[in-house]
Each structure stands twice: as C-alpha cells, then as structure tokens.
C-alpha cells in the first residue's frame, strides 16, 4: 500500500480511483464493460502519472524534506541488499557498546571488497526504536572510525550512506563525548588513505552527517537534503517556532540541486519519477553506476594523493562563491 505525503493528495485521489476501477473491472461481467473500464483506468492512470511527474519536477525544499524522510524510502539495509554481495556486518566500538544507528560491515561491490558505513533509521516502530531513528551516539562514530582504520589496513575503499536527522542529543551521548566522537570521525575521514565515497540517501543532518561524509566524492540522491541543522531545528532557534520549518528549509538551501550549485557535492543521483520510495530498484541501479565510476576514478590514486586531494577539496569549498 502506497503511503502518500500531504502534498501528494491529487495523486493519491487519482491513483485511488485507478485502484477502485481496477477492482470493479476485475468483477465486471461483459467484455464490453471491461474494455470501457480499462480505457478509464488508462486515462486516469496517465493523468496520475503526468501529475506526479509535474509535481516532482518542481518540489520545493520543504516537500523534498518530506520525500527525504518518506517512510518507504530505501534505507541503509535496502541499499546494502541491493548493491552489496556477501555482506558481513561488523559491530561495536570496542570501548562501550554497539550503536545500532550506525551500521558497518564489509562486502563485495561488483566483485571488489569494500567497507560500508551508514545510518539506519528503521522502517517500522520496532526497528526505528532499535536504530534510535538513525540518530547515532558516540559509540556509532567510534565504530565508524574503527572500520575506516581497518579498511585502510586492508586497502578497502569505504562507502558511506548518510541518512540521519542528526547525532542524538541525550545525556548519555553527551557524557561519553558526542562532540569529540564526531570530531574524531570527521578527522578519520580526512586522514583516510583509501577512497571514501559518501552518498546522502535521505537526510544529511549536521555534524552527525559530516562525521562520515568528509569524503573524496560526495553524492546526493535527487530528493535528499543536507543541512547544518534540520529545518525544524533552525526554525525553533531562529524564530522559536518549529512550525516555520518550511521557511527555514527554503532559506537554508538544503536540496541536492542547491548544494551542487554551491560546489558542496560532486553529483546528483537521479531518482525515479515520484521519488526513490516508488521504485527502489531504479535507485539502486542509478547508484551502482555512479559508485562504480567514482571507485574506478579513485582506484588509481595513491594514499597520499587521496588524502591530499580530499583535504584540498574541502579547503576549496566556499572560496569561489
């Protein structure tokens, strides 16, 4: 069952009508009646498709935020299932705990060994709680550092999938040094002597995102967002009014298209019409192509080159605006 966002009401109505007619058609008696219904279905379906395509062509930043957080959007585990063979999850920071908000492991991408690190939000109440809604604690970032260091020892490229509203703001997280954990993880990214490719698959929320996204190449899915603070957070700080999130989303320039224009990211991965949640496979195919090309480009570079280029890339950000 497709779940619709608020602004998709017209499409929900049209597609609802299509479903209704189809079920009427299935129980229709005469062939003539069936043909009539089929014609209606085709006509309304075409209308729905057109409306969807028109709508998604010009999503505003706030609508994109909602698409980026769509419950059916592919998450870390879906990408891993779709892109990685022989995936072996690895767990724990070797100091305190295993953080379920950040998943790590090694596996094969098109035959080559890679390390994968990413946020997992979960997709139902139980798994969302288990993964703390993708909001990592210090253990998560320390686990990420551990996996990056191991990847370097074994010369495995690292792929990170970013999907978090932000690092978790809780007592325990602060007690165990959330800030320091994020800083060290960002630093580990910048120090890495193997290729590091990051993809913002949903939400790239602030320090919790950059901690695993200071990468050689950074890509965003077409309708993902990446920002210094969530639109709600910005609205509540700037205006003490979280309901003005829509305004904040627009002002902050958080869409993939904006970020490409600002020179923050290296590319955009196209999503199918109507968003990634409507066709996971199409997203995986597009992602696979982009990843393969980036890995090929970076494979020829030495550790020193990779480190140097990554640092220069970040130092250059904002200098030509």
């Amino acid at each position: 069952m497709q779940s619709y966002l608020d602004f998709e009401k017209q499409i929900a109505d049209l597609e609802g009508k299509v479903r209704e007619l189809r079920s009427v058609g299935d129980s229709a008696d005469g062939d003539a009646e069936k043909v009539n219904i089929d014609e209606d279905v085709a006509r309304i379906q075409a209308k729905a498709d057109q409306a969807l395509s028109d709508l998604y062509e010009k999503l505003n930043p706030w609508q994109k935020s909602q698409v980026a957080r769509h419950p059916d959007r592919p998450h870390f585990k879906d990408f891993v299932a779709g892109l990685i063979d022989d995936f072996q999850p690895l767990a724990g920071d070797r100091a305190f705990a295993d953080d379920h908000a950040i998943q790590t492991g090694i596996g094969r991408f098109q035959g080559r060994s890679v390390a994968i690190i990413g946020h997992e939000k979960g997709n139902d109440t139980q798994s969302r709680l288990h993964h703390n809604f993708g909001m990592a604690r210090p253990e998560g970032y320390r686990k990420a550092v551990r996996i990056m260091e191991m990847a370097e020892r074994f010369n495995l490229p690292v792929i990170t999938l970013v999907d978090t509203a932000g690092a978790y703001p809780g007592i325990g997280a602060e007690e165990r040094g959330q800030a320091e954990a994020i800083a060290r993880s960002t630093e580990a990214c910048l120090n890495l002597g193997v290729p590091l490719i990051s993809i913002i698959i949903g939400e790239g929320g602030s320090g919790g995102a950059i901690a695993i996204a200071a990468a050689s190449r950074v890509f965003m899915l077409e309708h993902s967002i990446y920002s210094v603070i969530s639109p709600e957070g910005a609205a509540s700080i700037l205006w003490r009014d979280p309901t003005r999130a829509q305004e904040a989303a627009t002002s902050m320039r958080i869409t993939a298209q904006d970020l490409q224009q600002l020179g923050i990211i290296d590319g955009i991965i196209a999503e199918p019409v109507g968003g990634a949640h409507r066709n996971h496979q199409a997203v995986f195919d597009a992602t696979r192509d982009v990843l393969a090309k980036a890995l090929d480009d970076l494979a020829k570079k030495s550790s020193d080159e990779l480190r140097h280029e990554r640092r220069e890339k970040f130092l250059a950000i904002g200098r030509n605006l």
Binding site: A183, T186, C189, L190, S206, G207, I210, A214, Y226, S227, V228, S251, M252, R253, I254, D258, L259, L262, I264, F314, I317, G318, L321
Partner: peptide
C-alpha cells in the same frame, strides 16, 4: 547553512 557545516571538515 551548509557552508557553515563545511567549516567542520
């Protein structure tokens, strides 16, 4: 916005 976040790395 994001340019501020980029000051972290």
């Amino acid at each position: 916005g994001i340019l501020s976040l980029m000051q972290l790395p």
